[in-house]
Deep mutational scan, measured.
Amino acid sequence: MLYRITVRNADGEKLEIVVEMSEDEVRALAEELRKAGYEVRVEPIPEGEEP
């Protein structure tokens, strides 16, 4: 499935990426980023919607 991941650092800089991963993989990635001090938001992209 496609997911949009938005990551912000302490300075407020934002990075937005689209990935194709399983829900478990995305959850693990988000958890690791949060542990590293980043603010993370994950949104699933519905099938048929443009990323």
Rank of each mutant, 00 (worst) to 15 (best):
A28I: 11
E23F: 08
N9L: 10
E31C: 13
L15V: 10
V42H: 02
M1E: 06
A28E: 05
E31Q: 13
D11A: 15
E39V: 09
V7C: 03
T6K: 05
V26A: 08
E32L: 14
V42N: 00
L15I: 12
E50Q: 12
E20V: 14
N9T: 10
E43K: 04
I5C: 02
E47I: 13
P44H: 13
E43N: 07
E20D: 05
L15P: 01
V7Y: 15
M21H: 02
A28F: 09
V7K: 01
E31Y: 05
P46E: 09
E13M: 14
M1W: 09
G37C: 02
V18N: 03
E50Y: 14
R27C: 12
V18K: 06
S22D: 06
A36W: 14
E43M: 08
R8T: 12
E23Y: 12
I17A: 03
D24H: 08
L29I: 09
R4Q: 05
D24S: 14
E31A: 07
R8M: 15
K35F: 06
D11T: 11
E39L: 07
A30V: 14
T6L: 07
A36I: 06
V7M: 13
A36F: 10
V40H: 00
R8Q: 13
M21G: 04
T6M: 06
L15M: 09
M1A: 07
T6I: 08
P51F: 00
P44W: 08
P44C: 06
I5Q: 00
E43T: 11
S22H: 08
R8F: 12
A28M: 10
V18A: 02
V18S: 03
E13S: 11
D11G: 14
P51Y: 00
E16I: 09
I17V: 07
M21C: 03
P51W: 00
M1F: 09
R27N: 11
R34P: 00
V40W: 01
R34Y: 04
E13H: 15
G12I: 03
Y38K: 03
V7N: 00
L33T: 01
E20W: 08
G37R: 01
E13R: 14
R8Y: 11
R41H: 12
V42F: 14
E39T: 12
V18C: 04
V19Q: 02
E31P: 00
M1N: 11
K35T: 04
L33G: 01
L15S: 08
A10G: 14
E49L: 15
E39Y: 07
E43G: 03
V42W: 14
K35N: 06
K35Q: 08
E23M: 10
M1C: 06
A36N: 13
V42D: 00
E49R: 10
V40G: 01
V40M: 01
M21Q: 02
V7R: 02
Y38D: 02
I45Y: 12
E13T: 11
S22K: 12
N9I: 09
L33V: 02
D11P: 03
M1Q: 14
E31T: 11
I45D: 05
R27T: 11
A10M: 07
Y3F: 11
Y38F: 15
I45T: 04
P44F: 07
L29N: 01
E25P: 01
E16D: 06
V7G: 09
V19Y: 02
R4T: 03
R41G: 06
N9E: 03
N9V: 08
E49C: 07
A36H: 11
P51A: 07
A28D: 07
E47G: 13
E43A: 10
R41T: 14
M1D: 05
V40D: 00
T6E: 06
Y38G: 02
E13N: 15
S22I: 09
N9A: 12
N9R: 14
R34S: 06
A30D: 02
E49K: 13
P51I: 06
V40I: 06
E39W: 07
V26W: 02
S22E: 09
E13P: 07
E23A: 12
Y3H: 08
V42I: 11
P46L: 15
E23D: 08
R4E: 02
K14Q: 12
R8D: 04
T6Y: 11
L29Q: 02
D24Q: 08
A10E: 07
D11M: 13
E25L: 10
E50R: 11
M1G: 13
E23G: 07
E25Y: 06
L2Y: 12
K14S: 11
P44E: 08
P46Y: 11
E39A: 05
A30C: 05
S22C: 05
R27P: 01
T6R: 04
E49F: 14
G12L: 04
V7A: 13
R41Q: 14
Y38W: 06
G37S: 02
A10R: 08
M21D: 01
R27V: 08
M21Y: 03
L29Y: 15
E20S: 14
P46K: 14
R27H: 12
I17G: 02
V7T: 06
M1S: 11
K35P: 00
K35I: 08
E50P: 13
M21A: 05
A10D: 06
V26K: 00
G12M: 05
A28T: 09
L29D: 00
V18E: 05
M21R: 03
T6D: 02
G12F: 04
A30K: 04
L33N: 00
E25K: 07
L29P: 00
E47W: 08
M21W: 05
D11L: 14
V7P: 00
E39C: 04
G48I: 13
E43P: 00
E43L: 10
S22V: 06
E23N: 08
E43V: 11
A36K: 15
K14P: 09
G37I: 00
A30H: 02
E16K: 05
K35C: 03
E49T: 08
G48R: 15
E13C: 09
E49Y: 14
I5T: 00
P44D: 03
A28H: 13
E49N: 13
I5V: 12
R4L: 11
V42C: 04
L29A: 03
G48V: 15
L29F: 15
D24L: 15
A28V: 13
L33K: 01
E20P: 03
I45N: 06
Y3W: 12
N9F: 13
K14V: 11
M21I: 05
R41V: 05
K35R: 09
V26D: 00
L33F: 10
L29H: 03
L15G: 06
E47F: 13
E16F: 14
P46Q: 14
G12W: 03
G37M: 02
L2D: 02
E31G: 09
E16H: 06
E43Y: 11
N9H: 11
R41S: 15
Y3R: 03
L33R: 01
T6F: 14
R34D: 02
E32R: 14
V42L: 05
E32V: 15
A30R: 03
A30Y: 03
Y38P: 00
E13W: 14
I45E: 05
G48S: 14
Y38S: 03
A10F: 07
P46G: 15
E49D: 12
R27L: 11
V7L: 12
N9M: 14
I17E: 02
L15H: 06
K14R: 13
R41F: 10
E25N: 13
G48M: 15
M21E: 01
L2H: 12
N9P: 03
Y38Q: 02
E43S: 12
